[in-house]
Write a protein that binds this DNA or RNA. Structure first.
Lengths: 195, 195
DNA sequence: GTCTATAGATAGATAGAC
DNA sequence: GTCTATCTATCTATAGAC
């Protein structure tokens, strides 16, 4: 029971820290802000995390591991470079929209990470980029895609798709599926595929 | 003379604040950090800016005004939607590479702006987006471009091109012109134009 | 495991001498 | 216009009672 209650508190700290870091930035959020959001005293946070920095590392690494697992799962068994590109694009955009705070932090707070944690995150990020890059390279090799440089195009497409969270709102003019379709078309055309 | 020396100090404060904000984030940078970089005492900054927030507003608004003027200048007299799209893309990417800190701050520190300054920046940003959006809309109208939604594609392309500053290094594998060519090709293909 | 209380450092901003 | 000195508030983190 006590253990269960403890796990709940830790998870609540994680959720609130994530939301606050995403909204205001790591440096702008104090342990008091997090404690107030959770409904405990600032000192109590240190029963669950040894430091503020450790909360950030925990959030970012958990996100990267989850993201990689989900991506590999989404790509599993998908055949053909065009299909694989579409699968990746749909997965990536959907994931951004489902977990905008995680994504925003992983992208924005790299500079707030101290050296050790940062290297771990970089490794995971490179692993994630490699999934898309290999699809593009395969497409170029087959002659299916027309791409000048697969590594550059990988970063270009990831930036394009990740940027969706900056402006998209569920109650906006276009719904989620319509927006995803726009982006998928842009991605496909950008590698030289006409529908 | 004294006035001249004063102007220099103010400009040095601006330059150092810009660099530090871009590197560590607005909240993570203290007035002491800026003063140390400039080589003056913290209190002396207040002879030039009434508050830390005012430095940020100054930097962001100056950037947006300069960006808009430069963009309008670059587009001036360019005829034809394809040419105008290429002109905008080349201008935008070159500007990002020339002023990466300005661009990064304008994008990242919107959340650090208090309400009044933020509205002013939003107006300028919308004005900038409109330049590209109008090119895309014109191309769709003519049948030159194949774009599902010009507003969505505008944001997608801006995010794609802006992301270049995250990874590009002048001493990297590809030089500036090669990278710009990659991006311009991706932009053109993304609107359905094959070279 | 959470509380109260607080240590020790640092934040933005101001006052007054020069 | 810059300096030294400092105010007040807040920061991360810790100590010890319960």
């Amino acid at each position: 029971m006590l253990q269960q209650r403890s796990k709940d508190t830790k998870e609540t700290i994680r959720l609130n820290a994530l939301r606050l870091f995403a909204k205001s930035g790591y440096s702008a959020v104090s342990m008091r802000d997090i404690a107030n959001a959770v409904g405990i005293q600032p000192g109590a946070i240190y029963n669950h995390f040894p430091s503020k920095q450790d909360i950030l590392v925990d959030l970012m690494m958990t996100h990267m591991v989850d993201l990689l697992a989900a991506a590999n799962n989404a790509m599993d068994g998908v055949e053909g470079t065009r299909n694989r590109l579409v699968a990746f694009a749909r997965f990536h955009i959907s994931y951004q929209l489902d977990f905008p705070d995680h994504v925003f932090i992983a992208y924005m707070e790299l500079r707030s990470l101290e050296e050790t944690g940062r290297q771990d995150v970089y490794v995971k990020r490179d692993e994630y980029e490699a999934i898309l890059r290999e699809v593009l390279e395969q497409g170029v090799k087959e002659g299916t895609f027309k791409v000048a440089n697969a590594a550059v195009q990988t970063r270009a497409l990831l930036a394009m798709m990740t940027g969706i969270t900056v402006w998209f709102r569920e109650d906006g003019e276009l719904n989620r599926d319509q927006v995803i379709d726009c982006y998928v078309q842009a991605v496909l055309q950008s590698v030289g595929i006409q529908e």
